[in-house]
Amino acid sequence: MPEAGWDYAKQTTNQKLNQVIMVFLFYFLSAIMVISALLVVFSKSPINNVIYLIICFIAMAGHYILLNAQFLAVVHIIVYTGAIMVLFLFVIMLLNLNKAIIPQKSAVTRIMAVVTGGIFFLVLIAATRQTFVINPRYAFTSEIGLVANVGKTLFHEFLLPFEISSVLFISAMVGAVMFGKRDHAVGDD
């Protein structure tokens, strides 16, 4: 959505047209996202699930571009759509899961799931109803999502989280090697 507080009177027709297009794109992408997200849940075949999820992610990348966060959009497509989802597809194909094998839960579990999920949904709806517009603390500039600015923030203000996440990755790699390596059974403690 375009930023609030625009001076509508001073806008040229060109700007107005731009805004209409932006609003249209926003609703278009949102509709794609919502529909594909619902299809992820409702379709039975795992392959279809993954494909719908990819569509959902691509639409989300479109949202990032609308917010002028090009870098995020590109990374999102490369990492999620490119790497993770292709990995998903590979795993599904290798394990030959192309059938609907969702285990059937008992009626009690289902009812409980529906009730808790419904209550949670209700709370979220109630929350969104009362949401108000918050004045943005940082002024919106069109350059906010450019690679240079993201990099500056990342290596200046967020340097520690950026560096410390290496510990996370090294422990994940250690785990992958540990579980992936073949070794034989030993004593049980």
Binding site: I164, V167, L168, S171, A172, V174, G175, M178, F179
Partner: peptide, 8 residues
């Protein structure tokens, strides 16, 4: 960082 080593 605490949890992922623990999962392993």
């Amino acid at each position: 960082i605490l949890s992922i080593p623990l999962y392993i």
